[in-house]
Design a protein around this nucleic acid. Structure first.
Length: 423
RNA sequence: GGAGGAAUACCCAAGUCUGGCUGAAGGGAUCGGUCUUGAAAACCGACAGGGCGGGAAACCGUCGCGGGGGUUCGAAUCCCUCUUCCUCCGCCA
């Protein structure tokens, strides 16, 4: 959520930055400010009336103790009652208006984020490693893995629906090894390990920015408690400290969480239908940070490095791009995407996304910290990044390290986990 | 699933039946001081935190006793509702 104080004091700058997202926010911002003006006016009146009422009520008690007649005072209080009620209703209404609009306004892109309207304007930061050269026609994972009995799409569809898969044999083992390997790497870098709830409530989804705007992407559980399947560990992870005040000396807090993520992929019908690149259910290792504002961009770079370290260790070719203002996610100010090279697509595909939400999620979730025990609370900055998408890493290994006989050479760092050099 | 009980400030804990100088006794922790060579102990002092609004600021107002709603001139206290935790029984990995 945007800072309404900033809106009041520097409306034009906010609109200018928001509009870099290739959408016009002018009307919505004006509507917020109108409601805000109204709210403050009404609030001042209400509070004045309440002060008078409180004083009179107090004098009722005092008068009664002295045994005096209180009817005259009671009559005076009665007068203000309905006025307080109706004004209060107006204030609440204005507040709801503000909140409803603000919850649907995205974060402002970082001042230095590259300007652009679509993914075509994203900026390549670097390319690492070389694309593989094959002396035979390489196979796509959806062919190769099925032939090797590592994946079974048809029976998964029978059990569940399309966009689900069964991992089998060394295929399943590779997925498990990758999870273990990634978590171990991050633990070595000081990320605390988490295992999080897979069902989250609407309040949590709202704090991180999935709701209200992207509700159709979530799987809702049929239950009167209104729960949703975890769409990314960012949701349960960032919400750990919702409505809390952290100690400045504890920051930054760094977490690594493996979760299985569930997404409707509502807007992607018909896209990436082959293979496991886009599934309703997928495994992901997520990195999370709660940081002081002044440190958050250094922490973002550090997080990017932690994600890259996985690909470097696995010797997979990848590139890093910075998203342009038109492509940055709703809650984020700055985002790097890591893309791994996949022979079947003859292209780089996203395998991780590393973002700084600055104080946007912290405001929505009321996550604060105090620099010292007597300091005013401030909002933390929240960061999250993939470290990495396990299924897509799996694809990258199978496709990039395939041999002519259909076997797959296991990256050295995974050999201790798989206890094999070839699968 | 059944039957009970609880939620008060950083922690513990009174107050709730019987509504009104109780925004909240007391203890612990913490911070500052006295004493001490230093420390401990003892003693003295400080101590909700926070949201919102006004103000240049000092400060003022408002809200606030798990959340939300209600009754009342007035609610920690009465009523409704939700959430969470605990105990016992049943079921269960």
């Amino acid at each position: 959520m945007l800072d309404i104080q900033l809106l009041r004091s520097d409306k034009e700058a906010v609109i200018k930055r928001l509009n870099q997202r290739n959408e016009d926010f002018t009307e919505r911002i004006e509507a917020v400010l109108t409601a805000d003006q109204k709210r403050r006016e009404v609030l001042q009146k209400v509070e004045q009336l309440k002060m008078a009422r409180n004083q009179l009520s107090k004098s009722v008690g005092e008068a009664k103790q002295r045994g005096e007649d209180v009817n005259a005072i009671l009559a005076r209080v009665e007068d203000s009652k309905s006025e307080i009620q109706s004004l209060e209703k107006e204030a609440i209404h204005a507040e709801e208006t503000i909140r409803e609009i603000l919850l649907r306004i995205p974060n402002m892109p970082h001042l230095k984020a590259p300007l652009g309207t679509s993914e075509n304007d994203n900026v390549e930061i670097k390319t690492v490693g070389n694309k593989p050269v094959f002396k035979f026609p390489p196979k796509a994972h959806w062919d190769l893995a099925v032939e090797r009995d590592f994946l079974d799409f048809e029976r998964a569809a029978k059990i569940s629906t399309s966009r689900f898969v069964i991992y089998k044999n060394d295929g399943a083992r590779l997925e498990r090894a990758l999870i273990q390997f990634m978590m171990d790497m991050h633990a070595d870098k000081g990320y605390q390990e988490l295992m999080l709830p897979y069902l989250v409530n609407a309040t949590s989804m709202t704090a991180t920015g999935q709701f209200p705007k992207f509700k159709e992407d979530a799987f809702e559980v049929k239950d009167d408690r209104e729960l949703y399947l975890n769409p990314t560990a960012e949701v349960p992870g960032i919400n750990i400290y919702r409505d809390e005040i952290l100690k400045g000396e504890d920051l930054p807090l760094k977490y690594a969480a493996f979760t299985t993520a569930f997404r409707q992929e509502a807007g992607s019908a018909g896209r990436d239908t082959r293979g496991i690149i886009r599934q309703h259910q997928f495994n992901k290792v997520e990195l999370l940070k709660f940081s002081k504002p002044e440190d958050s961009y250094a922490e973002l770079d550090d997080m990017l490095a932690a994600s890259e370290a996985i690909l470097i260790a696995l010797k997979l070719p990848y590139r890093v791009i910075e998203l342009c203002t038109g492509d940055i996610g709703f809650a984020m100010a700055k985002t790097y995407d890591i893309e791994v090279y996949l022979p079947a697509y003859e292209d780089y595909r996203e395998i991780g996304s590393i973002s700084n939400a600055e104080d946007y999620q912290a405001r929505r979730g009321n996550i604060r910290f105090k620099r010292t025990s007597d300091a005013k609370p401030e909002f933390v900055h929240t960061l999250n990044g993939s470290g990495l998408a396990v299924g897509r890493t799996w694809i990258a290994i199978v496709e990039n390290f395939q041999n002519e006989d259909g076997s797959i050479t296991v990256p050295d760092v995974l050999v201790p986990y798989l206890k094999k050099t070839v699968i």
